[in-house]
Design a protein around this nucleic acid. Structure first.
Lengths: 352, 352
DNA sequence: CTGAAAGCGCTTACAG
DNA sequence: CTGAAAGCGCTTACAG
């Protein structure tokens, strides 16, 4: 009977550049040179280094590189959510643009606008040596985070992706206000006396969508009904649809997003109100499923993926100049796009 | 006329621990001690350090900490997408669980299963000193990535979140096969002679959903129609709906996800086929909008957020033991959940 | 082209 | 409780 000989503790240490140098029979800086390509290395040594790297399965330690470089090839993304259509598509655009530029996106969700929560999320994100940060500013929580990110010359550059500009950091924006004006005016042009509005949460006091809706109504001299404030749950749209169905004065509804609009349509349907014959419904965002509902949803199409991409581009401009003398002399301009109205089947003149 | 005196170049260097130590009049290790809490520090010094940190707006450099610790409080998430419902919800669960455990999630999308692309994405992700990686294995691209992540004792632990188990790394799974069996048997029990299937992309040869569907059909002795292979675009469902509407033999359709199902319903509607009177449609996933369509969609509900959470928990177990002697003696078991069928309005007995 | 040296900003033993 | 020293794994000048 043989005694159980404890095996030597396996080395869990990942191979380091010194291991590669030793195996290849060169100095550490030489290994570094073939990896970074900063300086030519004699072909035969180069080959030996490459072989050693492959044999060891060596990957440069990112922390060490970031320590030397003073920053990491990573950006922090602060956002109020990841799940709803607008968020997800914006994140897609940011991640894609970042990846193509060689950066990785670190996502941190800010659950609420409670100062403690906001602070904790920002701290978590900035505990990592990021080269820049983009705030997806669609709601109160991310608005609060942006305010916390006081731009100091020593902190990483910050940009925001949003439905409306605000001063401070550069913004990539999708002009919500203009879009809402457009949608509201379209409904008015159909002959509706006024338009009701289901509002989504906003980064500031109120959403650009609500602002544009009100502006169009006032400009047309139409009555401005109370805003129906919602959050992101489509079922809220459904419940409001049930209620609105009881009101004869409601003939046109502009919803803060397509999910809410789809909910409203279902609520109206359950109460026997026909869309668009009895009530017209307009959504916001251009959710892919809005094109497939019955009736197909009229909406304001938004290029969220493009928004995310533009936000990263803005940030890349800032990062490129970080640390440059006078680098902040020409801060990148904000980038604005105006969404466009897509008329489908859910809108028509009011019943008479 | 005064000459333009160039201002001194602003110091863009972020404050380091040495700056804090100098300002507080203590040694560097003492600052470290008050930050980490590793060792008690005399109250008065402690106060001075805290004050200096506040005054300087000091944040510990994450790269330096990661270098010392040998890893970062970050995990890499490799995924085929971020946008579709299942992906977005799974990512939400991962991010949330990671954040609550003090980890940040770095997201890298793998655009396709082209080996070059897969390799590039994996390299990008692992260029950062992560403590672990989770692969959201819903499609061929992420399946390929998982295969590339050869587990060596020196590389970070890996787990997968998926619709079906496979050997190798621990999996958090949502049992697609069982769920598809359930949905198919339900349709058969309604009296349909067979069920047609729109398949989504799979991580392996075919999706667990397609496997379960086939199994249920064979078990019941029903004819097994050709699979209608789709990708993630809901419009593909729509186009197939248009086509299926022409076929009298199609009375029940099981779709690989709810987006496709909603598209099918729209296609059938446009060709005058009624759901569920003429054709029954079942989706997969429990997309929030499926409950609000007309008719409301019967579906197999999946807890993606929970899946993401479970994947992180599995990883946390692995990370906790990383480097421990014999730490791999009891690898965490995989974690399996079975989705449940939610019957709504889109299913009924076949016409006779 | 290439090696020895220094340093990035921390934390962890090591001696008081 | 606290400071001086060493070291984490790299890259960047500095001398050949």
């Amino acid at each position: 009977m043989s005694a159980t000989v404890p095996r030597a503790r396996p080395s869990v240490r990942a191979p380091a550049i010194t291991d590669v140098a030793r195996l290849a029979g060169v100095s550490v800086p030489t290994v570094s040179r073939v990896i970074t390509g900063s300086t030519p290395v004699r072909p035969e040594k180069r080959e030996r280094v490459l072989a050693a790297i492959a044999e060891l399965g060596y990957r440069p330690n990112g922390a060490a590189r970031a320590l030397v470089a003073g920053r990491q090839a990573a950006i922090a993304v602060l956002t109020g959510g990841t799940n709803r259509y607008g968020y997800a598509a914006t994140l897609q655009g940011i991640e894609e643009a970042a990846r193509l530029a060689g950066f990785i996106a670190m996502i941190t969700v800010i659950e609420s606008d409670d100062p403690e929560i906001v602070r904790a999320s920002v701290d978590l994100a900035l505990a990592h040596p990021v080269a820049g940060v983009v705030v997806v500013k669609f709601d109160p929580a991310s608005g609060a985070a942006l305010r916390l990110l006081s731009p100091s010359p020593s902190s990483p550059p910050v940009v925001a992706a949003s439905g409306g500009r605000s001063r401070g950091v550069p913004h990539a924006v999708l002009d919500d206000t203009a879009a809402a004006v457009q949608a509201t005016e379209y409904l008015l042009s159909l002959g509706h006396r006024t338009v009701h509005h289901l509002a989504i949460p906003a980064a500031g006091r109120r959403s650009g969508r609500a602002v544009g809706w009100r502006k169009a109504l006032e400009r047309a001299g139409a009555e401005v009904p109370d805003v129906l404030q919602c959050d992101w749950d489509p079922h809220q749209g459904y419940r409001l649809g049930l209620q609105l169905a009881e009101r004869d004065d409601v003939t046109a509804v502009l919803c803060g997003n397509d999910e809410l609009a789809l909910g409203v349509m279902r609520g109206l349907y359950e109460r026997g109100r026909r869309v668009p014959e009895d009530v017209s419904v307009v959504g916001f965002d251009g959710h892919p499923l809005g094109a497939l509902s019955v009736p197909a949803l009229t909406t304001v199409e938004q290029d969220f993926v493009g928004l995310g991409r533009r936000a990263f581009d803005l940030l890349a401009g800032l990062m490129g100049r970080a640390g440059e003398v006078g680098g902040d002399r020409h801060p990148p301009k904000s980038s604005v796009a105006t969404p466009r109205l897509v008329v489908r089947e859910s809108t028509a003149p009011p019943p008479r």
